[in-house]
């Protein structure tokens, strides 16, 4: 599989400048989108379509945070498998938060306090990823990688929780 960071010509970092990435995406689209090859030979048109599929996929994987985390960890040799579960402590915490969200939904109450709490938890976990994938050396090893992996597993739950909170409005 193509490495999405490589496809977009970016360093493998957790933090990205979304505007710059979008700019790069547009520049590459301009160079390889099939529409730019309408009057070219069929072999070039096919190639353009294939490359664009790869480019679009790379953009999708990097633009979205959870996908970016999964991509980085897989590239570092520690993929998060579908069956990966967070430790019981976090699962309890998630369940408790989810109940609170349900209550807020049924009462039609604003969930600002909940939102702040989830955001703070997310910030915490993200810092481990930020540190492991800071663009200096890749792949991270030892404890740095372990911490990043565990943070990635937790974020799977936490991002989903934040989506649910966002849907409350």
């Amino acid at each position: 599989m193509n490495d999405p960071f490589e496809t977009l010509g970016l360093p493998r970092t957790f933090d990205i400048d979304l505007r710059a990435v979008e700019q790069r995406f547009r520049d590459l689209s301009r160079a390889m989108h099939p529409d730019r090859f309408a009057d070219k030979a069929p072999a070039e048109r096919r190639l353009a379509a294939e490359q664009t599929v790869t480019l679009n996929d790379a953009f999708r994987l990097i633009r979205d945070k959870m996908n970016r985390v999964l991509t980085l960890l897989a590239a570092a040799g520690r993929p998060i498998h579908e069956t990966a579960r967070a430790e019981p402590g976090l699962l309890m915490e998630i369940m408790e938060l989810r109940e609170a969200i349900d209550d807020a939904r049924t009462d039609g109450r604003p969930a600002e306090a909940l939102q702040r709490r989830v955001d703070a938890r997310i910030d915490d976990e993200e810092s481990a990823l930020r540190e492991a994938f800071d663009g200096t050396s890749f792949p991270p090893v030892g404890e740095r990688l372990d911490r990043a992996y565990n943070a990635g597993v937790r974020l799977k739950y936490l991002y989903r929780l934040r989506d649910e909170l966002d849907a409350l409005e």
Binding site: G9, L10, P11, T13, D15, I16, D17, L18, R19, A20, V21, Q23, R24, D27, R60, R63, D64, K65, M66, N67, D134, G135, Y159, R160, R162, D163
Partner: peptide, 22 residues
């Protein structure tokens, strides 16, 4: 064009960024 300032996440872009979580 070079991709500048890759280190700094644009804070206000969070909405776009975090949304498509599958």
């Amino acid at each position: 064009r070079s991709v500048d300032s890759v280190e700094s996440e644009v804070a206000h872009a969070r909405g776009v960024d975090s949304h498509v979580t599958e």
